[in-house]
Design a protein around this nucleic acid. Structure first.
Lengths: 135, 135
DNA sequence: GTAACTGCAAAATATTTGCATCCTT
DNA sequence: AAGGATGCAAATATTTTGCAGTTAC
């Protein structure tokens, strides 16, 4: 699984990339840079984490999730994400209690009617509230 | 107008606050911290800008807009924003060409049906593409 | 006059870059 | 062997904090 993803993107298989992918695959929600660093611990350099995440975004393996506070979150792209094109059109949920971000795979972002002249390419939707675990 | 906003929030009327509010009122879209600093120029300290924006967010005068890249954008709240409660339920549009962010006041964020157990409190939606000016 | 706001300096964080070395293919 | 990936050091950039001086009310 992990190897497939890397090979599909023509990336060398390295320990750092495997470890970070492993974390994404095992976590249901989105991850902040800090989460990833905490997980990789002393194993890898902070810089490597930056570069790995950047590479993954470029290759369409992960994508940014918009947040209202000023943090950056990353989440795995689904299969239909191709390099340069992110089609992760599901809604993201941020829990106010546990502050986890969860991908609601089954909830697709609805289409909205834009004013004249606006051409939509991509839409993101983030809902916050209380998640199933915290209610 | 500017004075009304500040007084309504029980904030002292200072040059810095007036200048920053002036910018928000005269710009149609959302502003990044950098935009605001560029506008205020040497007039005010960088720290004052940080503190002013923070105060405005707390008082419900402006709000954060989620972005997919890792920048922070601010936009004016509408009248129905109260302290601590932001009800700016309109869609935001980011133009891929001019990279301006525009508040689509007339497009409200649609309701979505969430999985069982999830309680929504707030929803944000960001659409990107090409805006009316750039098409 | 008093509380609130600002500027300055500095600390704490976060992010990026260059280069030499090591690892994957 | 060659190109890509990593670690380290250091340069940048961003954000926060403390405190003293100034301003609004």
């Amino acid at each position: 699984m992990i190897l497939d993803i890397l090979k599909k993107s023509k990336l060398s298989v390295t320990d750092g990339r495997k470890k970070i992918l492993e974390l994404f695959l095992s976590s249901e929600g989105a991850l902040a840079h800090a989460d990833i660093e905490k997980y990789t611990g002393e194993t890898f350099d902070r810089v490597t984490v930056y570069r790995t995440l950047q590479t993954f975004v470029e290759k369409g393996i992960i994508h940014h999730i918009p947040t209202t506070d000023n943090s950056i979150l990353y989440a795995l792209c689904k299969d239909n994400c191709e390099e340069g094109h992110h089609h992760d059109n599901h809604v993201h949920f941020i829990c106010d209690v546990c502050s986890k971000t969860i991908c609601l795979e089954d909830v697709t972002v609805p289409q909205v009617k834009l004013p004249k002249g606006f051409v939509p390419k991509h839409a993101e939707m983030v809902v916050s509230g209380v998640c199933d675990d915290c209610k």
